[in-house]
Nucleic acid binder design. Sequence first.
DNA 1: TTGTAGGCGTTATCAT
DNA 2: ATGATAACGCCTACAA
Lengths: 338, 338
Amino acid sequence: MADVARLAGVSISTVSYALSGVRPVSEATRDRVQWAIEQLDYQPNVMARGLAGRRTGFLALLLPTDESPADPFMIDIIVSAAEAARERGYHLLLWTEPAGESAGVKDLMRRGLIDGALLLSVRLDEDRVSALREADVPLTLIGRTEDPVDSQFVDSDAEQAAEVAIAHLAELGHRTVAYIGPPRSAYEDGIGIVIRIHDSLVRSAERHSVRLITAYAERNVAASTQTVTDLMSSEPDVTAVLALDDSAIAGVLDGLRSIDQSVPSDVSIIGLLVSPQVAELAWPKVTTVSHDPRDLGRLAALAMIDSLNGASSRTAQVLLPSELAERSTTAPPPAARL
Amino acid sequence: MADVARLAGVSISTVSYALSGVRPVSEATRDRVQWAIEQLDYQPNVMARGLAGRRTGFLALLLPTDESPADPFMIDIIVSAAEAARERGYHLLLWTEPAGESAGVKDLMRRGLIDGALLLSVRLDEDRVSALREADVPLTLIGRTEDPVDSQFVDSDAEQAAEVAIAHLAELGHRTVAYIGPPRSAYEDGIGIVIRIHDSLVRSAERHSVRLITAYAERNVAASTQTVTDLMSSEPDVTAVLALDDSAIAGVLDGLRSIDQSVPSDVSIIGLLVSPQVAELAWPKVTTVSHDPRDLGRLAALAMIDSLNGASSRTAQVLLPSELAERSTTAPPPAARL
DNA sequence: TTGTAGGCGTTATCAT
DNA sequence: ATGATAACGCCTACAA
């Protein structure tokens, strides 16, 4: 930077201001500085900036290690967050930590490394959130706590997604619908989206006079295959199945195939909050009620950056609405069972 | 740090040396410093370190954005790299960039941000590698270029994996084996592991007098389902199928099921370089020839850090051997077709 | 074994 | 609108 100043014939501070724009610089000198910068192919030093200024340009993405292995939906979140951060000149740090912990991130903050943190898979009851807030770590949740009034978050609108899914099935004429959800442990762990989806489905089903049968399957194909075949034999009235998880979808398709139920003429399937890739890769292509998972990561990163820059006075709280994407797994129920 | 020095009754530099261990410090003072550190719950400032020292403690993980969406195998690599880095006190930066580009990483280096970079999905012919090497960016490849003599890398031993897989099938008595590989575009793009696996399979098949039929399927279930059914009708002698990709495996299982070929009594299946999760999640559980994908990320990160610390004089070149994990998809071929 | 002091490359606070 | 010049918090010769 000293070199640039010398070449441009100005002081170091002028170069700095020309770069940051924090104080007015005459057009002429700005141009000369710009020219010198290009001449020397100068790149500002990140560490020096972090030391001198009050912002480092780093965000931590906190992802729990001991939870279910990351699925495509989550990958999309992570990568899109990294891309959005990068667009804004920020850097995304991948920070792995056991589910409940937050000490590591607190340290990152105290070491002057990060400006803020994005939290993935937020539970309804989050110790991390309160702990980090006390430590003055700017936070953006991907997901929500039970009562997120004063926290910044980006989350899927579970209520709306459930309503769209149930409404679509009800319109088609389905009266008995099964929901293959995550294992009970996910409920006990308080994973927000899992609980909200379930509760919302129950409410929507009531509203539409649909009978909803909930089943719990481990997150693997074999388990959900088993679950769905058991279910179909004990509940023969079921004409449609909702599935939340990628593996659940695969399992449901497999299970129905194994008992010679054809999709969608015998049984309809809707995938909830499933990434489009997964839906397109399955056979037949799965009708979904979902939104682009990339929005979750992207908006979370942008919200964080905006709030760091003091752009918005209020904390951003975004609920992403889902859309019905009709593919090849939904149809009216077979006449015989109407 | 000044506070710590004061509390411990020593100079700032003594604290620094006590921390880094670069020069001897008497036990007594070290203890006092340690005590003061704990009293004040002191954490060294990362930016200041990066500025003053010659190491920043950051590694970039470069992942191409425009390639096929990340699969579980790749996720494992990424997360394990982050964990390994963290264990050693390093931080992993997620850096997304279009496949061929390397300008971004070069800038990261010139801005004094990173100490080195890990490159994911390395192609046989890599412009990035030579470009970054010229820019003096310490590099560790996850994968290999065509002629990796002087570069540091961690890669799967394709030759060995192919041999293990073919040998196992040959031993079981299979004489005609199909290989459902990635689409031709992956070969044209020069993805190292894809090409090496294929070439190695061809060689191993020859060695074991096995007829190998190669097919190319897009990375989705529908395509590989189609591919495998077509294949089985045009090549009825096939009694075993090798598959490289997760989606290929699902497709192969689906396809065989759809034409009433039972696995493994009619047709055997082996998954190559598939993450154990995926193999266990499928039904029936897929026999694999693979290694833990986490080793790739972990060893790459550790190799990078070691070489930065000048630990090893020679550049690390690791080829990870695969192991046969017999699950439920391999058996001798049906007698009729022997 | 320990202390002193200069420097790392910016930002920010004074002046001018 | 622009220049000097302290911090920023740590590392590392150089001295003692």
